[in-house]
Each structure stands twice: as structure tokens, then as C-alpha cells.
Design a binder for these strands. Structure first.
Lengths: 227, 227
DNA sequence: GATATTTATTATTGACAATATACCTGGACC
DNA sequence: GGTCCAGGTATATTGTCAATAATAAATATC
């Protein structure tokens, strides 16, 4: 019940979005779960207006589905959709990686190393939210180096869209270790000259979470009991 | 003052968005113009709620800029930004075109021919709005054939973003004729087997409006007077 | 030239309206 | 007598609005 003094009213909505996202990512709100405005209002202590706006945003992002006069639910993705989403994300990723001038500037490498250090710290602590955020920050910082902010924006769109799929992977100890190693490899490739290798690594980096998710979808969790 | 019985309240917002877009596209609202809620409310006979919502949407689209407590303005693009936007759009377009299975199904070709016929009709009549809409419809229908709705969605995003740049080109008689011819060529390429040629044509198809816009930006219109 | 004041504009809120869904009741047909 | 459908009512939920507060920019004043 800490009040924590929300910085400004404008950030309040962003905060709601973050928290709903978080709840979705970490499975507290499973796919298909209804997002009822009144509940969210109470849960986050916000007015209907902000909650609604947050839902509109999340709908646009793609992780929430809204139906007029009926309400919002957490969206779930079929295997076909997951493949399609990743197809585009991989394409954008590959392209962005190829556009990064190599060898990268020292400032970029320093920035990434700083983020990576933080990432490792969160990983050790098992702070899921921190892991997730620094992971995203790492990729954004990396791809920003491609020089085209619009490409980065689109990549971010797809990172948001694949949020639910990636979360579980980062919670898994093994997957997390692999992710950390791959980030390190990316940094070392930035010192070299091989855009193609970088591009390939970035695409592979996505592969595990995608495969993982598809597997999870194919074999529905047995510990949920009959429905 | 025709009332025209707006189909449903939900469509009202879409209608406002359409009309604001239209005003921006056709230059009635030039880049930098302020979009004042009260004005729009009166102009479109809508409540503040819908106008605001429309502005939020247009901001997300990218053709409107909003600053807290200050208001919304029509966004303008620097040459660098235009190039970056088109860089991504071309990339997505190329990719989508390469993914269309050739030769295309007869149903697709029929659909495109129908749209194209409408397009020509609007062109003859000089109906700018109709020209614009059918042109977009043509491309959406074409690229939908790539089989990945998410790729199409991203393409649509960029079509929206380049809206202000493309409009003037479609108003120009010459540019319009070229556009019509290129559409015909696309349809005939769909009957063949050469994805690469199709891809190339689609990218070239964008080139004229892009070049045109960049030229227009480079040589500011002289009939606006000093500011 | 700095500061107070006014004005134009957007942000926020809570009350109310509209809508869809779930539930319940009554009746008819099997 | 039981069951299933139709209709209507209640309820849960979202949609809309208009009044008010908050903010930033412009203007006037000293």
C-alpha cells in the first residue's frame, strides 16, 4: 500500500499500462481473462478514463482484445499467428542488424555493456520485471544503432506483440543463461566486421522463446486441471 | 447540413478520423497547423470525447503530433525522416511482394481488376478521396495475398504514415496515369511467375511520390508568402 | 525587462445513458 | 409431468457527455 507519489498524472496511464502488461506477461492474467474496467480501477486506484485509455493502448499493441459494449480480454495467439508474428519480427531484426555500422562505436558498446551488467544483476536476483525491462532495453539500444528510428519503432511494436511469448522464457533459468551469453556474443560481434553473423545471432536469439512458446501451446499445461 | 444518420456511435469516431485525415491529405490542414479540439468539435459536430479520441489515434498513426497541455498539430516530416520512413516501407513492400504465391489465384486477380476499374472511374471523375481510397484498397488487397496478416498490418501502418506524401501525387494528372499503368502491370505480373519483377515494380511504384515529396520539401512553395 | 494577469486550450472527473448478457419465469408441446 | 423455448426483466459493464480543474501561452503593467 505504498503510495510512492506518482510523478505526474500523465505517467499514471503509462504506469497502468506497465502493470497490466506485467500481469499479463507473468501469467497473473492468462489469455482469455476478462479485463473489467471497474476491477482495474480498484486494483490500480485509477479513474475509469485512464484504465480505458490503457486498454485502448493495449488493444492497439495487440495483446488485448476489446469488443464494444462487452469488454476487454487478454488475447491469445494460435500457433499460426505466432509463426506469422515471428516471421515479420525476424525479418525486421535481420534487416536492422545488417544496417548497424561495424565495427560499432565505443559509446554504443559501453552503453550495451552497462545494460548487460544490469541485466545480469536482475537475473541473479530473479527479478522478473527487471530482467524483462533490461532485456528490452538492450535490444532497443542495439537496434537503435541501425540509424533508422522508424525501423526501431516497428521492431518495438513486434517486441510488444511477442511480450507474452517471451516472458516465460526469461523466467526459465536455462533460457535466461543462454540469453545472457548471446547478449555477450552480440557485443563481441559489434567489435568485429561481420554484419551477417550479427544478424544471424540476433535472429537465433529469438528462436528459443518462439520454439518454447509453440511447444507450450502444443502441449497444454497439465497442472491446470480440467475446465 | 445533411444529417445522413450516422450508422452507429462507434462509426462516428472513425468518420472524424477519416475527415481529419482527408483535410490533412488534401492540404486543407497543412503541416504545422494546429488542431484545436473546440474547432474540430464544431467543424465535425462531434463531442470533445470523440475528437480527442480521434487525435489520440492520429497521433499513434504518426500524422499528428500532440503535446500535453498544449495541443495537437499536423506533423511535418524532414527529408531525412521521409527517407527513413520509405526505407522501411520499401523493405516491407519488397518482402511482401516476394511472398505472394505466383501465379496468383484467379479470385485475387478478379478482385484487383474490380478495384482497379473503380480506381480508374474515380480518376476520370477527379474524385480525390475516391482515388485515394481505391488506391489503398488495391495495395491492401494485393499484399494481403502474401499470406501474413501481420506483415500487411505493418505495411498499412506505413501507408498511413506516408499518407501526406502520397496525396499530392495522386492529385497530379501525370502521376495518376503512371499509377494506373503500374497497377495494370502488377496485375499482369500476377499472372506470371516472376516474384522479383513484381517486387521491383511495387517498390518503383512508391518511388515517384517519394521523390515528388522530397522535391516539394526542398523547394518550399513560393505562393505561401513570407512568414 | 521582469512579473502579474488574462485568455485560450487541454486534462480530469463523476454522473448518467446505452448496451449486451445472464437469469428467471411462464407456457406449450412431447 | 417434464423439458425446452420465448419473452422479459435484472444486472453487469461499457459508452457518452458536460461541467470543472489545471496548465501554458500571450498580454499588459510596472
Amino acid at each position: 500500500m505504498t503510495v510512492t507519489k506518482i510523478a505526474s498524472r500523465a505517467d499514471e496511464q503509462a504506469e497502468i499500462i506497465r502493470r497490466v502488461e506485467e500481469d499479463i506477461i507473468f501469467g497473473r492474467l492468462p489469455p482469455g481473462a476478462r479485463l473489467i474496467e471497474d476491477n482495474l480501477m480498484e486494483r490500480y486506484g485509477a479513474s475509469r478514463h485512464f484504465v480505458r485509455q490503457a486498454l485502448v493502448h493495449l488493444e492497439h499493441t495487440g495483446i488485448v482484445q476489446r469488443e464494444k459494449n462487452v469488454g476487454a480480454t487478454v488475447r491469445s495467439y494460435s500457433t499460426a499467428e505466432v509463426k506469422q508474428i515471428y516471421e515479420v519480427r525476424e525479418m525486421l531484426t535481420r534487416q536492422a542488424a545488417l544496417m548497424i555500422p561495424l565495427p560499432a562505436k565505443a559509446s554504443l558498446i559501453m552503453e550495451l555493456e552497462a545494460i548487460q551488467a544490469e541485466y545480469v544483476r536482475y537475473a541473479e536476483r530473479g527479478d522478473l520485471r527487471g530482467i524483462h525491462d533490461t532485456n528490452d532495453a538492450f535490444h532497443i539500444a542495439l537496434f537503435a544503432a541501425c540509424g533508422n528510428p522508424y525501423l526501431v519503432r516497428s521492431l518495438q511494436d513486434y517486441m510488444g506483440l511477442t511480450l507474452p511469448m517471451r516472458a516465460k522464457n526469461l523466467a526459465d533459468h536455462n533460457g535466461l543463461q543462454v540469453s545472457i551469453q548471446q547478449h555477450d556474443m552480440m557485443i563481441s560481434l559489434l567489435r568485429g566486421n561481420d554484419n551477417w553473423a550479427l544478424s544471424q545471432l540476433c535472429v537465433e536469439h529469438m528462436h528459443s522463446s518462439k520454439a518454447d512458446y509453440l511447444q507450450r501451446v502444443a502441449v497444454p499445461g497439465p497442472n491446470l486441471g480440467p475446465d
